[in-house]
């Protein structure tokens, strides 16, 4: 790999200051970043390792929300009895990320800051209307994911935690790319405590989005049949060697129906 500087941050404030000073990137679990650097798809001149910051780890229930620290690993979410009791969909989602080794290193904060277009966590953040808590404040899920690998985070702004409101019910279903284990398409469906329905889709475009036709269909009738009958346009969806826009458009209601049926 090419040469870079490495700094270990002692606190969130220390990390933000080091990133501002060096113009470098935060290193969370590194499961995307280290691979990208090896291929020189990313070439930061400095990395700031967040793994020594204890305040970024852990899971707690606070009122009507589950708060997951940014450096909490996918495997820790998957094994959390608190998350399982409050939002089992997050356990199922975390269990399906990458593979066992990736889940043991990769983190929630790293995944959403990286904003891979086919990542699983963004679907949950958007589908539950979560709040992204950062070193500078808070971001609503709507508007957090801006584009391909692009978020509303400033260059020296760190995700510290995500607050997921506990829904009445929620589920995630994905069609997995068997080689990369990323979502060819993933759909997160949720019915909030007040009955409002949100449906978020990942893998289908450069950035996750809420699917209006599915939200309307499921608001009328929160059933698999209603989801399957919804029509999703292929306009603007991604096409690549794995799937055409039309195929992705077809998968969205199918996966939404599978998610609803799993409840």
């Amino acid at each position: 790999m090419y040469a870079f500087e490495l700094h270990k941050a002692k606190s969130v404030a220390d990390a933000a200051a080091l990133i501002a000073k060096t113009g470098g990137k935060a290193l969370a679990g590194g499961q995307s970043l280290v691979g990208a650097m090896k291929l020189r798809l990313a070439q930061p001149g400095a990395l700031v390792d967040l793994s020594g910051i204890a305040e970024l780890r852990g899971i707690r229930r606070e009122g009507g929300a589950v708060i997951v620290g940014a450096m909490t690993r996918h495997a820790e979410v998957a094994a959390s009895a608190d998350v399982k009791a409050a939002i089992p969909a997050l356990v199922a989602l975390a269990e399906g990320i990458g593979d066992r080794q990736v889940r043991n290193m990769g983190t929630l904060g790293g995944a959403i800051a990286h904003a891979d277009p086919a990542a699983d966590w963004p679907a949950a953040v958007l589908g539950l209307g979560a709040t992204v808590i950062t070193s500078k404040g808070r971001h609503a899920a709507d508007g957090f994911f801006k584009g391909l690998y692009e978020t509303a985070l400033a260059g020296d702004e760190l995700v510290t935690a995500v607050s997921f409101p506990v829904p009445r019910k929620a589920a995630y279903a994905k069609f997995r790319n068997p080689a990369s284990r990323f979502a060819l398409v993933g759909v997160f469906v949720a019915q909030a405590g007040d009955g409002a329905v949100r449906v978020a889709v990942t893998g289908a475009t450069a950035t996750p989005f809420r699917c209006a036709p599915l939200e309307a269909a499921l608001a009328k009738s929160f059933t698999a049949d209603a989801a399957k009958a919804a029509k999703v346009s292929a306009n603007g969806l991604s096409g690549d060697l794995h799937a055409s826009p039309e195929y992705r458009a077809h998968l969205i209601p199918v996966l939404a129906a599978r998610a609803v049926a799993s409840l």
Binding site: D49, Q101, M105
Partner: peptide, 15 residues
């Protein structure tokens, strides 16, 4: 790594 399986080609020694 601390008892958990990880891929040593996708992490820095410093991690």
């Amino acid at each position: 790594l601390d008892g958990r399986a990880v891929k040593s080609c996708t992490m820095l020694a410093a991690q």
